[in-house]
């Protein structure tokens, strides 16, 4: 990358001071990671994320070790009449009985499902959905952005129009309309239904989630393709594919990483929102669904509501702050 003269001067100052100490070649990515490592917020958030990922990954192990179940279908899970009182409140643990290690976070009313187990599996679902949606939407956004930006003329016009079309389409309305259609195609097969819901949810998130990145990339490509190194490559006859992926793409690592790290929490929240509205997952544990189930109990069993709220809040906050830090780290204009 070339820098403008003003920046060059500033960098020159900094270089001038440190030259005497040690001169080592460092890639922009390396610099960014070094900056990240010094950022306390980033380190804290990354740790939280790591813990959450580990918890989610180990959900079956933890649930097995504590002998708790997220699914009332499980043959070993206690039946509702064994663990619930006559009005559906848990007969063990909060809110009516003292804390017990048997069920550290208590039981869900009406079904008697263990809250900790459900929370762990719900976290798992959230992370898988968010990750899958992020990966797919990034790939789609990247390809469309690259193609639109690099190919002048009608291709760019059409692609830009499609991007604008999807951007202007009301996101929530689209989801409300699409979710039942996708799900209704599942027919009578229950496993297929659960799978269909899962795929439908991810698809919807992707369908409405790729445009931001596509636009960003298109803009970057538009400015980059006028640079000398791209023109040189074109002149010496480098194939377009190679220019796109070998010349342009490496120059856009920073905006891509930033977009990904900011998209993740968005997808976590979107999954929770859709499941809360009953449009997302029904057969799979989900934080949003737990939130919907718990909402009516806010008065008598606040803990039940706070658990999914706290989990979603922690997850999205940590991811957002981490995303912010990553953006700062990758942005050469940031000075700390």
């Amino acid at each position: 990358m070339t820098a403008n003269p003003g920046e060059l001067e500033a960098v020159g100052d900094a270089v001038g001071q440190s030259v005497s100490a040690e001169v080592t070649g460092r890639s922009p990515t390396r610099i960014a990671f070094d900056r990240l490592r010094k950022d306390k917020v980033a380190v804290g958030c990354a740790t939280i994320m790591l813990v959450m990922v580990v918890l989610a990954a180990l959900a079956p192990v933890i649930a097995g070790a504590l002998d708790i179940y997220y699914d009332i279908k499980d043959p070993a899970a206690p039946s509702p009449s064994e663990v619930l009182e006559f009005d559906g409140y848990p007969a063990i643990g909060p809110p009516l009985h003292p804390f017990t290690w048997e069920h550290p976070l208590g039981l869900a009313p009406k079904t008697g499902v263990d809250n900790l187990a459900y929370l762990l599996y719900g976290l798992r679902t959230s992370l898988i959905v968010a990750l899958a949606a992020t990966i797919f939407s990034t790939v789609i956004g990247l390809v469309i952005g690259l193609v639109a930006g690099f190919s002048r003329g009608w291709v760019d016009t059409v692609l830009s129009f499609i991007i604008d079309l999807f951007l202007s389409f009301p996101f929530l309305l689209g989801m409300l309309a699409l979710a039942p259609i996708l799900i209704s195609n599942a027919g009578n097969d229950l496993d297929k239904l659960a799978r269909a819901q899962f795929i439908a949810l991810i698809s919807i998130l992707v369908i409405f989630g790729w445009m931001g990145l596509a636009r960003l990339i298109r803009g970057q490509v538009l400015s980059l393709r006028e640079r000398e190194f791209i023109q040189a490559a074109e002149v010496i006859g480098v194939p377009t594919r190679r220019i796109l992926f070998k010349e342009l793409l490496p120059n856009m690592v920073a905006p891509i990483v930033v977009a990904i790290s900011l998209a993740l929490p968005g997808f976590v929240a979107a999954e929770a929102l859709l499941s809360f509205l009953g449009l997302g997952l029904t057969g799979t544990p989900s934080l949003g669904k737990m939130l919907a189930d718990a909402a009516p109990y806010y008065k008598d069993y606040a803990l039940y509501l706070w658990m999914p709220v706290a989990t979603i809040a922690t997850l999205t906050l940590a991811l957002n702050l981490l995303g912010d830090s990553i953006r700062d780290a990758f942005d050469p204009k940031t000075r700390r």
């Binding site: 009332i72 509702p80 009406k110 029904t282």
Partner: peptide
């Protein structure tokens, strides 16, 4: 499928 209590009831019955 679009009735939570029914889905829970289904699970209980299957089990």
């Amino acid at each position: 499928t679009d009735l939570d209590t029914d889905v829970a009831g289904k699970d209980v019955l299957v089990k």
